[in-house]
């Protein structure tokens, strides 16, 4: 099953490599990984999406917790949560394609953020499925380049992950 694990990490050199090293060393999956400092500059927030049986996920969270620099973590998929990913896509856009792409971008509530005579650069945010859906809708043949940030997530409601 797919899981989103959100981690508060000491914002120190080497901390990220420990997290990544743990996943490869113990043969766990990483599907996406994002990391950036938080409002408290001593802490980074890291989100990793992974797949595995319940037993594997339990081990992943326990092993992550064992890392000295991991301050706190939560498996967001255990409760209601919001997940977002940002995608930038370069699409071939000439002739009648231009209007068609524009329509699709609107349906997906994206924005065209850069334009040349033959290329649109589109920005789109949403959950991963929505981003996959957009690529499908425009068709891979017109896609020149895709860059995705990987998933960020946060719990719904009043629950917060903080010190």
């Amino acid at each position: 099953m797919r899981r989103i694990i959100s981690v508060l990490l000491e914002n120190e050199p080497g901390a990220l490599s420990r997290v990544v090293g743990l996943f490869s060393q113990r043969n766990y999956n990483i599907e996406t990984l994002t990391v950036a400092p938080t409002e408290d500059e001593t802490l980074s927030r890291l989100t990793v999406t992974t797949t595995g049986s319940d037993k594997v996920i339990e081990q992943i969270t326990k092993q992550l917790n064992k890392l000295i620099e991991v301050v706190k973590l939560v498996d967001l998929t255990e409760g209601a949560h919001i997940e977002r990913e940002l995608m930038l896509v370069k699409l071939k856009a000439t002739g009648s394609q231009r209007a068609e792409i524009k329509r699709t971008v609107d349906i997906f509530r994206g924005q065209i953020v850069d334009v040349t005579s033959s290329v649109y650069t589109v920005q789109l945010a949403g959950d991963s499925e929505k981003l996959d859906g957009f690529i499908q809708a425009v068709g891979t043949s017109g896609v020149l380049e895709v860059v995705r940030t990987g998933v960020s997530g946060i719990a719904r409601g009043e629950k917060v992950l903080s010190l």
Binding site: K55, E58, Q59, K62, Q63, N65, K66
Partner: peptide, 11 residues
């Protein structure tokens, strides 16, 4: 003492 040792191979 190590939670990760518990239920790692045998539940």
């Amino acid at each position: 003492i190590d939670p990760a040792s518990i239920s790692k191979t045998i539940d």
